[in-house]
């Protein structure tokens, strides 16, 4: 995944079955963000792997005051990359089991 300066990681163990998973997002490189980034903590949230869209969560973070509008795309991409990795690992685990 491209280094966007925004890090997204699992906030809980992934058993490969649950539809919703807890993720944690934080800024590693403030310089890569266009807007001024106030929050220096890690933001934990739940994401439904089947139904939800990363860019929508990013927009909610902007609306909640965590990020500037101009960084919504970067945040959305960071979440998308992590979600894609989670799904890829799940598919690999399933195919290995078969």
């Amino acid at each position: 995944a491209e280094d966007t300066g925004v890090r997204v990681e699992l906030a809980e163990e992934d058993d490969g079955k649950k539809a919703s998973i807890a993720l944690k997002l934080w800024v590693e490189d403030h310089k890569k963000l266009k807007g001024k980034y106030k929050e220096s903590g890690a933001i934990e949230f739940t994401f439904d792997l089947e139904k939800e869209v990363p860019e929508v969560v990013a927009q909610e973070m902007v609306e909640s005051g965590f990020f500037h509008e101009s960084d919504a795309k970067t945040v959305g991409k960071s979440i998308r990359d992590r979600v894609a990795l989670i799904k890829w690992r799940r598919e690999r685990t399933v195919s290995a089991a078969v």
């Binding site: 903590g41 949230f45 969560v57």
Partner: peptide, 27 residues
């Protein structure tokens, strides 16, 4: 560690806590 919560109008809860220690040292 201090945590704060923000609930978005769409209902999603965002829990803010300190960045994981190990990651800070990696930089």
């Amino acid at each position: 560690s201090a945590t704060a919560q923000v609930v978005h109008s769409a209902g999603r809860r965002f829990i803010v806590s300190p960045v994981p220690e190990a990651r800070l040292k990696e930089q």
